[in-house]
């Protein structure tokens, strides 16, 4: 980190980033608990939970993966799982691009590895700190490390809780998936611009699910809805201009 002529030590900034992310780590923990419970219900083994949370480390993509997951390996939809992770995570292109000013002109490839620890939460705190003029790669990493620990540990706790329940449907827990996704969706509401993409996505998915087996309706609906949302947004801007 001596490449930047900055008057700080890596450890100080790392801890500052972690401290700034304590409030958001609590919300990560709540989501992590729910994911762990649902992962148990979806039939993931403990080692699969550790691998997925440790390596993929992306909340929304992992929630979608649970819906696609099957306990029998021969019917596991490997292609849709990877494709869904790609599509759900595409928005990170926009997030990580805004972190470019933190990195030196050269050696960007090494910086690319640190993108592994970027989440919505520590990204938001880092960008806010950048606007105040006090941020760094170490700050980003500190927040990311805290989010990682929070995510992994609560996933495991949730997984343990989930295994204490023998017959999920008897307690209405089969509805936990739909309820969680509905709440996640409502949490993404940003305004009336969301009506068209969500409606197009929902209707396309319902129609696709009628005719196509498996989980393709998620990808078809997601792509159709997001394209519709972008079309409306761009046309509205053109109209105003």
């Amino acid at each position: 980190m001596s490449t930047l002529a900055a008057p700080y030590r890596f450890s100080d900034q790392f801890l500052a980033g972690a401290r700034a992310c304590v409030p958001v780590a609590i919300s990560v923990a709540a989501y992590g608990l729910v994911w762990g419970v649902l992962a148990r219900g979806a039939g993931l083994s403990l080692i699969e939970v550790v691998m997925m949370s440790g390596l993929v480390f992306a909340g929304s993509a992992q929630f979608v993966a649970l819906d696609l997951w099957t306990a029998t390996p021969s019917s596991l939809p490997i292609g849709p799982l990877i494709l869904a992770a790609l599509i759900v995570n595409l928005r990170y292109l926009l997030l990580t691009a805004t972190l470019r000013p933190l990195y030196p002109e050269k050696g960007l490839w090494r910086g690319a590895l640190s993108m592994y620890l970027v989440t919505d939460e520590n990204w938001a705190m880092t960008v806010a700190a950048m606007a105040r003029g006090g941020s760094s790669v170490a700050f980003l990493m500190g927040g990311g490390a805290l989010a990682w620990i929070s995510w992994m540990s609560t996933n495991l706790i949730g997984y343990g809780l989930g295994s204490a329940i023998d017959d999920p449907a008897r307690w209405g827990l089969d509805f936990a998936f739909t309820a969680t996704f509905l709440a996640l969706l409502l949490g993404m509401w940003k305004g009336r611009g969301d009506i068209v993409p969500w409606l197009v996505a929902a209707l396309t998915a319902i129609a696709t699910a009628q005719f196509v087996e498996g989980s393709w309706h998620i990808l078809v609906g997601g792509v159709a809805g997001s394209l519709a949302g972008a079309l409306v947004e761009v046309r509205k801007h053109a109209h105003h201009a």
């Binding site: 979608v64 759900v88 292109l93 998915a205 949302g229």
Partner: peptide, 18 residues
């Protein structure tokens, strides 16, 4: 704009059929 709308649309597509 397309990238921004993807997560919400994917979740809507997931919830609606259920």
């Amino acid at each position: 704009a397309w990238l921004r709308h993807i997560p919400g649309a994917v979740l809507a597509a997931l919830v609606a059929p259920a």
